[in-house]
Design a protein around this nucleic acid. Sequence first.
DNA 1: TGGTTATATAACTGTCAAGGCATGTAAATT
DNA 2: AATTTACATGCCTTGACAGTTATATAACCA
Lengths: 107, 107
Amino acid sequence: MVDLFTVLADPSRRRILDTLRGGDGLIVKELTAALDLSQPNVSKHLRVLREAGLVTETVERQRRRYRLRPDALRELDAWLAPYRRFWVQRLDDLADHLDSSTPPEGT
Amino acid sequence: MVDLFTVLADPSRRRILDTLRGGDGLIVKELTAALDLSQPNVSKHLRVLREAGLVTETVERQRRRYRLRPDALRELDAWLAPYRRFWVQRLDDLADHLDSSTPPEGT
DNA sequence: TGGTTATATAACTGTCAAGGCATGTAAATT
DNA sequence: AATTTACATGCCTTGACAGTTATATAACCA
């Protein structure tokens, strides 16, 4: 369960990440309220996210504040990189095509 | 099982995609040989990948050639985009920091 | 025609994880 | 001290696949 892709495969976890994107972290209760999930459910997902390095936990007395750690997503970006080449390539092809074809009317 | 993240969560499927990145597609038999997976297993994964729009199937007589369709990964890129902001931000912060500190010796 | 090749699909089995409920624990409140 | 709040964790059930084996289908070959 350490695999980043597997961790991101769960919609609830992605919603948690999306929610943590704004502001400076949220405590568990705020997350359960925002996402309408049960507290144990949220806690479990947070554990998985934490073990994957996607969030950090800060203890504040009784509460625990979770913050996004977007660096962990660079692994995903790295995986995607060689594929991104392809659609950039297509844009280049399109540009070449436009260059070699009759220019359109207006400008 | 139409969810892109779920489809990509399987390592075998990612290996298939990686393998299809070079050349102009492969037939099923070539994939099974390259990845050392059973033929039914490969066929099932290819079906999932096809239904997710990640590969295309071309019938060549008896054989079926599968090609990568990297456009389908733009959805993943789009999901990642708002997170990419964050680590770009950090680079900016670093740049700002360097600007405001004593310039290094050489050049 | 009969056999072989290439691929898909069905049926079965094992594994694993998501979510529910109940409970533990520590801090806060009264 | 007793209660409440905030959170984690354990157990349990259920469902979702992954992979195997066996079989169906279609094209190719001798």
